[in-house]
Design a binder for these strands. Structure first.
Length: 258
DNA sequence: GACCCTTTGAAGATT
DNA sequence: AATCTTCAAAGGGTC
């Protein structure tokens, strides 16, 4: 957050690549000055704002009652234990998984440990899972990272892009979504930044001791070299720079990026 | 069946 | 402080 433009969401700007690695820096969207990335998890001004559509996207009702954090998930003095299904917390597909907070409150960020496959049962139209396996995996739940603005955007727009382009491969879809993301106006992007910020805040409140580090190493990665090779030629998209061999065919690209 | 690919953003780790 | 790394989602492809 820029110290001057408090309401200006920062964004990560790709500034180039060294040895195949993209350098990132965070700048204020308004004055373009380099700034800290923590654009105000604690910014009460935004918390006081009316709930934007993104929370509707999540299926989380905005409680009408007041709370310490108006417009956001109320946290009673005792914690989150008073959040009830009637508040809509459980109505979103994301909320229908087996993830259960230590308080007993289910949350999409909690999934049984062992990889992305486990995500299916809360995010893919509630595919029924064999019960014994679920119980087995539920022993060691993993609290996932909250989604960032772009991830939320992807989640919302993926189906639309698939329908438009008849593509199914996620890598290609994501390239298109990346370009469309950059084509969004700041106002449009701001909606997702705010949703992401609230997601992070909720996550912090539900899992105060959680750290992104907790999930480090849970995905086994193959040799880093291969990844660097793949990025050195085309790098990490740096505002439109793509590997030619992986470029999305022009006929699949939306008009606005052609 | 685990990981890759591909995207951006957030945050932890390292220099 | 600056830079680097990992992981969030997705699902076809690869090994």
């Amino acid at each position: 957050m820029c110290s001057i433009h408090h309401n200006s969401p920062c964004f990560t700007k790709r500034t180039g690549a060294t040895k195949g690695v993209i350098i990132t820096s965070c700048v204020c969207r308004t004055c373009n000055s380099k700034a800290s990335c923590a654009w105000s998890l604690l910014s009460s001004s935004l918390l006081l704002a009316p709930m934007p559509f993104p929370l509707l996207l999540l299926g989380v009702h905005r409680p009408s009652q007041t709370s310490d954090i108006p417009g956001f998930y109320p946290l009673p003095p005792g914690g989150v234990g008073q959040i009830t299904p009637s508040m809509g917390w459980f109505t979103h597909p994301l909320m229908l998984g087996s993830g259960v907070h230590t308080t007993g409150i289910p949350h999409p960020a909690i999934v049984p440990h062992s990889g992305k496959q486990e995500m299916e049962h809360y995010d893919r139209n509630m595919k029924p899972q064999p019960e014994p396996k679920r119980e087995k995996e539920a022993k060691k739940p993993t609290i996932k990272k909250p989604l960032n603005a772009f991830m939320l955007y992807m989640k919302e727009m993926r189906a639309k892009v698939i329908a438009e382009c008849t593509l199914k491969e996620s890598a290609a879809i994501n390239q298109i979504l990346g370009r469309r993301w950059h084509a969004l106006s700041r106002e449009e992007q701001a909606k997702y930044y705010e949703l992401a910020r609230k997601e992070r805040q909720l996550h912090m409140q539900l899992y105060p001791g959680w750290s992104a580090r907790d999930n480090y190493g849970k995905k086994k990665r193959r040799t880093r070299e291969k990844q660097q090779d793949s990025t050195s030629g085309g790098k990490r998209s740096a505002f439109g720079t793509y590997k030619e061999k992986d470029a999305v065919p022009a006929q699949f690209l939306p008009m606005e990026v052609l």
